[in-house]
């Protein structure tokens, strides 16, 4: 998903003595084979991940690691394992989250079975570094997203991918920090020509479709072309390390929600209210088709936006979505925001 293969590869290549296959980038082929073997009405990330798994197994992987939870995502693993076994693939499956919870003993046993010399202390050290890589990646990513419409974004993206490349071969804790500082300063040095009253748009929605550019038809790039400042709240660092704190805050500050609704649905409602109060010009909500938690959140989000008169647009992405329809509606959304701003 996105560029997160970099920290994942970093972690596993240091704690396990085995060859780590980098998952191939998601392409049309991925979603085609994924859809072929998935139930038609399953949420779209299932199709993408299954497609990726098949591609990787075809490339010679014999062990796959997956984790997830929060919604139907927590059950992907069991179903995908069955589908793959029916297709007569032979592999070992390591699930870091089983039946909705993380069983450390089980993970230890699984990892030990791959590599007899597996050392939990060493693993902990590299986990810490990986956490930092994710944090640095997301910080840089947020900065780029914020300014992408107003500067030489090709140069920014080039520096970003160079940084990711160096992360892969980083020596340790301080090396990672050094690489991050070096490239972030270079990226910050690129002049940004942003007017004070530019359009501000927030992107919320279901996590996979938001974070994998292929799954949302490179929507952010499309927006950037129109000189819009983009804020996106969900990234891996948020999901792994901030969510549990932030969600309590959202529940407290948002009268519309009392309980968490699964996945990021409640977070998105909380963010909508925050953005409406902060004076964002518009909100874009994206999700994969059949994503149940987000479907539950949409009417509430819509209601909040109506009250605060903030325009919102909803996009649903599936393997069969027409790209033209999305572009037309997005263009009209941008025109609408611009007309409002001018008056």
């Amino acid at each position: 998903m996105g560029n997160y293969r970099v920290p994942a590869k970093f972690l596993f290549s240091h704690i396990l003595k085995c060859k780590i296959l980098e998952p191939s980038a998601i392409t049309k082929n991925t979603i085609e084979i994924g859809s072929k073997y998935s139930p038609d009405f399953v949420c779209t990330p299932f199709k993408y991940t299954l497609g990726t798994l098949i591609e990787d197994l075809d490339n010679g992987a014999d062990t796959v690691v997956q984790f997830g939870g929060g919604c139907r995502y927590g059950y992907y693993f069991e179903l995908q394992e069955q589908i793959l076994r029916d297709l007569e693939y032979n592999f070992q499956y390591i699930n870091l989250v089983t039946e909705g919870r993380t069983d450390i003993k089980k993970i230890y046993k699984d990892l030990k079975s791959i590599d007899k010399k597996f050392n939990p202390i060493k693993a902990l050290y590299y986990l810490l570094i990986t956490k930092n890589i994710v944090k640095y990646m997301d910080t840089v990513d947020d900065y780029i997203r914020h300014n992408i419409g107003f500067s030489d974004f090709k140069r920014m993206q080039k520096l970003n991918s160079k940084m990711l490349y160096e992360f892969e071969t980083a020596k340790g804790y301080f090396d990672v920090k050094r690489i991050y500082k070096k490239y972030f300063e270079k990226i910050k040095a690129i002049p940004v020509n942003k007017p004070d009253n530019c359009l501000k748009v927030g992107i919320i929605g279901e996590l996979y479709t938001i974070m994998e550019p292929f799954a949302n038809y490179f929507l952010e790039d499309e927006l950037a072309k129109h000189n819009i400042e983009i804020t996106r709240f969900t990234n891996a660092h948020y999901l792994l390390f901030e969510k549990h704190k932030k969600i309590k805050q959202y529940l407290k500050n948002t009268p519309q929600i009392t309980y968490t609704m699964g996945a990021d649905a409640s977070d998105n409602i909380g963010r909508t209210l925050e953005m409406c109060k902060e004076g964002y010009d518009g909100i874009i909500h994206i999700k994969s088709t059949f994503c149940t938690p987000e479907i539950g959140a949409m009417p509430i989000i819509n209601q909040i936006c109506k009250e605060y008169k903030v325009p919102i647009i909803f996009f649903s992405f599936d393997a069969n979505t027409s790209e033209t329809g999305i572009k037309t509606r997005l263009e009209a959304f941008y025109d609408m925001l611009e007309m409002r701003k001018k008056l």
Binding site: P311, R329, A332, L343
Partner: peptide
């Protein structure tokens, strides 16, 4: 509303 598009929808 007041000469500005406030909302729109298309059959999808």
């Amino acid at each position: 509303e007041n000469g500005i598009i406030t909302d729109y929808a298309m059959n999808t």
